[in-house]
């Protein structure tokens, strides 16, 4: 599985893994969105990139989409454990203006 989700109190941590491209991002998106819908009064969604070995701009689209959803639900979005290459792609997109990067 390219994503494993963990629910703790009102927060979700999604552990992403492997290669994130247009092909794998569909599965990741569906899994995370299903999880978001299952948690009432969600306070935060954390995307953990520690085990991600590759990411292209599809990953940026994935984060932007989850940001929009987080805004609707009213929760915060946190990106954590970004390997250098992924940080570089994220910075090119200017995503740090909308999501908190730890």
């Amino acid at each position: 599985m390219p994503v494993t989700t963990q629910i703790k109190d009102n927060s979700i941590i999604a552990y992403l893994s492997g290669e994130i491209d247009q092909h794998s991002s569909k599965t990741i998106r569906d899994e995370i969105d299903l999880c978001i819908k299952s948690v009432p009064n969600l306070s935060s969604l954390t995307l953990d990139f520690k085990s991600v070995t590759f990411m292209d701009s599809s990953g940026v689209g994935l984060v932007m989409g989850r940001y929009r959803l987080a805004e609707i639900v009213g929760c915060s979005l946190i990106l954590t454990n970004l390997p250098p290459h992924i940080k570089r792609v994220m910075k090119l997109s200017g995503i740090e203006k909308i999501a908190k990067i730890n």
Partner: peptide, 21 residues
């Protein structure tokens, strides 16, 4: 950068910007 013909499908519109960088 950020131009996409397909905003509904969550494309970031960054393909060419990343290729250039």
């Amino acid at each position: 950068p950020s131009f996409t013909t397909d905003p509904a499908s969550e494309r970031a519109g960054l393909g060419f910007a990343i290729m250039s960088a």
